[in-house]
């Protein structure tokens, strides 16, 4: 069930983006900045309306509001990226998007990915972009290139974008599944989290030693015949079968809540245990990118080489064996 004012909010956002793109081709600097401010206000209004349609449910909590705040920052940054006349500032605003995106990741319980995002994106990729931009651009403020100031077909682009946003919105609201009971799902996830400790016996042994000093792990053959796992979740509580020092019969220890594996550990376990082939493939992709970059950078290309080649070709003597034919 899609609220109809989601589409109205999409239209408001589209209007704001069209104003924003018109703003960069304004006559004077004052007119440009005035139009830009108005456009940003319209966009923020539209985005706020979009978020308000999402938050109409009863289960509104603080993290949804904080997520919406990080979304406002992200969209402001995105608006600057696609309208700023100086590309270097566009790259800086992209870093703002990365930081607010990391905040959203933390709110969504993905703390490892939040830090990885900041380190890899803001620390490596965006810095590379800025190096290349500074290599290619020698502009002073106010003398931006025409191709940076005048967008190409802004109205058609924004119309296509708002149509895409409307379709995505209908998918977002259409797929909002409420069929599964949230508490049942939570209990299952909690059980899975505890059971994944079975795949890390050394960590489990360390946690057991903290809970009961001197205890050794034994497999719990009483619960299922072919089940060699040490940890079982019984009534929502993580129970480990251990052999206490001096005892002949195994006994059971309940782990404290702090023993549950943390997010980086869970991601690492999933990466290595569940997707080992994909991990290798990622390595191959990086290797190929390395080879490709070396291959691209190997050949020396003179400035304005094509123009000189054109001039040489139009002249009477064409040296066929010149060998300056470009291969990229």
């Amino acid at each position: 069930m899609v609220p109809t004012d989601f589409y109205a909010a999409c239209a408001v956002c589209a209007l704001g983006f069209i104003m924003l793109m018109r703003a960069s081709s304004g006559e004077s600097i004052q007119a440009r900045s005035r139009l830009k401010t108005a456009a940003v206000v319209v966009i923020l209004g539209g985005v706020g309306w979009l978020f308000a349609t999402c938050m109409r449910n009863d289960d509104l909590d603080a993290s949804a509001i904080l997520l919406a705040a990080s979304g406002f920052v992200s969209v402001c940054g995105a608006a600057q990226v696609l309208s700023h006349p100086r590309p270097l500032f566009a790259a800086l605003f992209f870093i703002l998007i990365i930081v607010s995106g990391a905040a959203a990741y933390i709110l969504l319980d993905a703390s490892f990915m939040a830090f990885a995002l900041v380190i890899v994106y803001a620390g490596a990729i965006l810095i590379t972009y800025m190096f290349v931009l500074m290599l290619a651009e020698h502009r002073t403020p106010g003398s931006e290139e025409a191709y940076d100031r005048f967008p190409r077909e802004p109205i058609i682009a924004v119309l296509i974008g708002s149509a895409l946003l409307a379709v995505l919105g209908s998918a977002i609201f259409g797929s909002a599944e409420t069929s599964r009971d949230a508490s049942v799902q939570s209990a299952l996830a909690s059980r899975d989290d505890w059971m994944s400790l079975n795949r890390m016996p050394r960590l489990l042994q360390a946690e057991v030693s903290l809970a009961a000093p001197g205890a050794r792990l034994v497999a719990g053959e009483t619960y299922a015949k072919s089940d060699a796992s040490h940890l079982h979740v019984i009534n929502g509580q993580p129970v480990v079968r251990v052999l206490l020092p001096g005892a002949t019969q195994p006994s059971e220890v309940i782990l404290p809540a702090g023993a549950m594996i943390s997010n980086p550990r869970a991601v690492g376990l999933a990466l290595v245990e569940d997707f080992p082939v994909s991990l290798e493939l990622a390595g191959v992709i990086l290797m190929m990118a390395l080879f490709g970059a070396v291959l691209l950078a190997r050949r020396q290309v003179e400035h304005a080489e094509d123009e000189r080649r054109e001039a040489a070709r139009s002249g009477a003597t064409v040296d066929a064996g010149n060998g300056s034919g470009g291969t990229i």
Binding site: N57, S63, G71, I97, I156
Partner: peptide, 24 residues
């Protein structure tokens, strides 16, 4: 919460759309 997921998905849709509009 349903609101949290929907807000996150809306942000992601907005970012993707901004990227597409900017690319065009």
């Amino acid at each position: 919460g349903q609101a949290q997921i929907q807000v996150a998905l809306t942000i992601s849709a907005l970012l993707f759309t901004c990227g597409l509009v900017g690319f065009m």
